[in-house]
Every structure is written in structure tokens, then in C-alpha cells.
Design a protein around this nucleic acid. Structure first.
Lengths: 158, 158
DNA sequence: AAAAATATGTCAATAAAGCTGACATATTTT
DNA sequence: AAAATATGTCAGCTTTATTGACATATTTTT
């Protein structure tokens, strides 16, 4: 494939032209923002031997105490088999506990223990600080604008 | 574990108190926004038999034609062994091609083929539309604010 | 009361995408 | 000539997800 460098240059020009119709700038900003946003808790999780999946479970159970397994599956949009392993590890390690549903005894209501709460806070803290710093540098009223933007990015079905 | 519901309520109150110091609201908005943002291209990728890793490679090579393997590793922050499998598949399928570096012949400069370009655009298009919709509903000046926020979320090292 | 549906749990096999370590080859730099 | 660099590759491992099948307890429907 010799003598193709002119064609490469043509590709480049075409790209530049099409770039106008696609918002590559914010697509990339989002990618890097999220990559680094999740790297904060990853460092903490490594010490406990947990991963991102555990983080998500502890977070949502801490935020909505008493949610059922079905609620959690719906929030995370994963299968129950995927959840099972992670949830079992968190229960065995004493971060989450289950209680039989008071009305429907088939249900398992989920709660964080005090250790689970502490873990959830420790994971959220550096993320929260990162957000506060970013907002502070985004001008006045940034919080409301960012909230509306992020809410608009998510599927309406939620 | 009967008679524990009072303790649960106590947990709840503690949670509410601590919530003030941690920005759970934006943490969750970011999670849902990114989850749904990545679900758009996932649907397209499934048809090609590719995954998110292929998406990222095609995207960055399309955006920066002629980047080297080392550049790509640095951008993606993965190991060369991880990249190798994905990159090989993309080259074998005709979406990406390599050219020996004109000055340093050890380097492999990466380019998208026309098919690769088309794939990158097809994947970016629904994400771009989602961003445009979200920005439109975020008020005037939202674009600049969101850009500053996202840039501030990423590590300075970049 | 019996049958069907539901909520959860579990076993087994598989896949995607990352990782580490080790080593090979070609090329450039020292 | 030796060392460093850019890339490629082999082998094995881990995490986190998947699907399918089936078991148990409980509630709802018939």
C-alpha cells in the first residue's frame, strides 16, 4: 500500500468537514471526565478487594435503605446472576444485610451496616470533592445548568 | 432479626444528616447519564460483533489520524496486551490500517479506513444527538458551562 | 385446595476486556 | 557494539458481565 499518503490527507479533510455535524468535543470531555471520576474510588476499593460492581451496590443500598433485590436489579440494569456474586460477598463481609420483607416475605430488603455506610461515604467523598472543584471553576449558576444537562442525558424511561 | 426496624430508621436519619456534606445528587446524575450515553453505541456495536473497547479505538484513531500505538495506549490508559487483541481485530476487519512511521520506522501510525470512518461516525451520531437534546434543555450558555465542568472533572495531568 | 405466578437463590458454562510476566524482532540511540 | 525503544505475541489470570436451567418459598389466581 505505497503512495497512499495523499489519500490519508484527503481523509483528514473529509473528517474536518464532517466534524461540524457531530459534537466530538463534548463526547470526549465526557469520556475523560468519567474515566477520572471513577478512578478516585477505584483506588480505595482495591484495598478492600472489591471492584466497581461492589461500589455501585453499596452506594445504591446506602442511598435507598430497604430497597429489594428486584429494585437493585432494575437500577443497575444487570442480571440477577451478576448481582448475586457481588451481593453475597458484601453480605459475607458484613457491609450489607438482608431482612425479610414485612409484607411480602419473599422479598429481601437490603440495608447497609455501619461498616457499609462508612464504605459508601469513603467512596463518595473524593468524587464529591472533585465535583465541587469542577463546579467552582465553571462560573455562577453552574450547578443548576449541570444538573439539567446530566438529567437530560439520561433516558426518559428512568 | 426481628425488632430491628427502629435501628433501620436510625440509619436513615444518620444518612440524611451526612448527606449534606456529600454531593450524592450529582454523583448519581453522572452515573445514569453515562450509563445511558454509552448504551446508544452499544446497540450498534452488537451488530458488528464489537464491544466498547473497539469503539474507543476507532474513535480516537479517527479523531487523530496518524497517531502511534504508544499514543493510543497513553490515551486509553490500558496495557499494550489489552490493546493488541482489539486492534488486531479492527485491522483484520478492515476498519483500521497501519503505516510504518516515516521518520521512526519502529512506529506504526494508525488510520481509519473509509469503513472505519463510517463506523466512528455511526457510533458518535446518536451520542451527539443526545448531547444536543440535553444542552437544548439546559438553558442559554449551557454549552460553555458544561464544557468547563467536564474539563474540570478530568485530572489535570491530561 | 390446586395451580400459576413471583422473588430470590444457585449451578454451570461462556464472553469481553482488562491484567502481569516473559520473550522476540526491528530499529534507533548511545 | 551495546543499550534503549516501539511494537508484537504467547500464556495464563481476574473481574464483571452474560444466558440457560432449575430449586425454594411465598403469594396470587383460578
Amino acid at each position: 500500500m505505497a503512495g497512499q499518503s495523499k489519500e490519508n490527507t484527503r481523509y483528514l479533510s473529509d473528517t474536518a468537514a464532517d466534524d461540524d455535524t457531530i459534537d466530538f468535543e463534548i463526547i470526549e470531555l465526557l469520556f475523560f471526565a468519567y474515566r477520572d471520576f471513577t478512578s478516585d474510588p477505584d483506588a480505595i476499593l482495591e484495598k478492600s478487594g472489591f471492584g466497581r460492581a461492589h461500589h455501585r451496590v453499596v452506594h445504591f443500598v446506602d442511598r435507598e435503605p430497604g430497597m429489594t433485590v428486584a429494585d437493585l436489579l432494575d437500577t443497575l440494569k444487570i442480571t440477577k446472576q451478576s448481582l448475586a456474586r457481588v451481593l453475597k460477598q458484601l453480605i459475607d463481609s458484613g457491609y450489607i444485610r438482608q431482612e425479610t420483607g414485612p409484607e411480602d416475605r419473599r422479598q429481601r430488603m437490603l440495608y447497609t451496616t455501619e461498616e457499609g455506610q462508612a464504605l459508601a461515604r469513603a467512596l463518595a467523598e473524593p468524587q464529591s470533592r472533585r465535583i465541587a472543584d469542577a463546579l467552582a471553576r465553571s462560573g455562577p449558576g453552574a450547578r443548576e445548568t449541570v444538573k439539567r444537562f446530566l438529567a437530560g442525558m439520561k433516558n426518559a424511561a428512568d
